[in-house]
Each structure stands twice: as structure tokens, then as C-alpha cells.
Amino acid sequence: MLDDFLVRAALAGLGVGLAAGPLGCFVVWRRMAYFGDATAHAAILGVALALFFNVSVFAGVLVISILVASLVSTLSGRGLGIDTVLGVLAHSALAVGLVAVSFLEGVRVDLMAYLFGDILAVSRMDVLLVWLGGAGVIGLLMWRWSALLIATLSPDLAQAGGIRPEREQLILTLALAIVVAVAIKVVGALLIAAMLIIPAAAARPLAQTPGRMALIASAIGGLSALGGLGAAWQFDTPAGPTIVCAAALIFAASAAVGLMRHRLG
């Protein structure tokens, strides 16, 4: 069954969608949308370095993502606004990555595959990595769920309850880096943040509790991946962007439901 590239693509997309949804909720709750973008854009630099040092792209992206995410955490709150820090880092990292790729001699890099994803070309190994990484992220979130929530609501309340907010931030940073590393092949560096934010935003009007919102976001993420892939096959469109379009459609429908309920209620 895994011999079929479409099956592999569907499995990879589904894995990314399911894991990105719940993590995306935290990205939305903590207003870290730009943070996700910065980390994802930096992934291109990770790709370049991985190819240069001849290590796996997954490892390269993971390391660079963690580095950039930690750098953002360190730099923010030191004189520059967080949006400025992220703006500088996100675009610099992307630019440096693109320049670094051009230096790679003898290696033909399909840059488009990393910028916009190449889900139809994922290997069995990629699928395995997606599901292992996804399971790791879901595991992290479930393990730290209450602590992450209270640290998100109020760092002071967390502290008074014996929880270290910086530690929880670190866990989210790590989870983010893992998602970026496994998602770059599926939707590409430019659109990873969309898979984090859109399903979470679409889940918001449908949920009454944080746990429910995370579950719904996960389902929407998975559905977008499968639906987008199907549509891409049907209409012969690029798969990554089509997946994001599917998520955007679901968001529009959910926002309409939320608005109507607001009017009526």
C-alpha cells in the first residue's frame, strides 16, 4: 500500500495536519503567529546546511529551527519589540538560507520543493518521520497540557502554582521546531505557519474549552490535508498551497457559523 505515492502523500499530510492543529492553538493563544513564521522561514537555512554537511534534511531543519526559536526567545524583551525581532530574524534567516543554497556546488537543490513543499515525492522514511515527529509533539502537549495552559493564561499564576513559565515556553519551542522539520516537505517553509494558525482559528468558534479546541483543530488540520490533496489531484494544482486553501475554506465556513451564532444569540 505504501508503494503508492498518493497513499504516502495522504499519510504524510494527515500526520502533519493532526499534529499542527493542537500546537497551532497555542501559537494562536499566545499570539506567536509571527514566531511560527520566523522558525519556518529559517528552515531553508537548515536545508542548505544539511545538504552542505551531508546530513539528513530533517536533522538540519530541526537544529536550525530550535536555534532560531531560542534566539527569538532570548532577543525579545531586550529593547526591541517582539514583532521587530521576528521581522528581522524571519526574513534574514530566509535570505541567508536562499544565499547559502546558491553556494552549494555540485548539489542540485530543488528550492521550490522546500519553499512550497513536495508532498507527492515523500518517501516511506519521510512518512515515518512525520508520524514519529507528530506523535512526539502530541505527546509533549498532552504531557504538559495543564502546565502549558496556565503558563499561557498567566505566567504569574503559573509561577504561584509552582510551574516555571520559561520551561513551558521551551517545550512549545521544541514542539514548533519538530513540526517545522516534518512539515517542510509537505507544505513547504512558506506555508507551514498557515497549517498552524488556520485550523486553530477555524476551531475557535466551534469550541467551549481549550481541549475541545485542540481536538477540533487537529481534525480540521487532518481534513484540510486530505481534502487539499484530493483537490490538488483533481484540479492538477500544487499540493501544498491547495492544502492551505482547503484549510482557509474551512476557516471561512466556521467563521460564518460563528458570526451567525453571534447574531442569533
Binding site: 496556565i150 493564561l153 502554582g161 467551549q208 474549552t209 481549550p210
Partner: peptide, 12 residues
């Protein structure tokens, strides 16, 4: 962030 009073009281 949707959260009911009861759920909020249950944190952490």
C-alpha cells in the same frame, strides 16, 4: 482561548 470557569479552576 475558550475556557469555562470550571476548567479554569482546574488549572494547573
Amino acid at each position: 482561548l475558550p475556557i469555562t470557569v470550571e476548567r479554569f479552576l482546574s488549572l494547573p
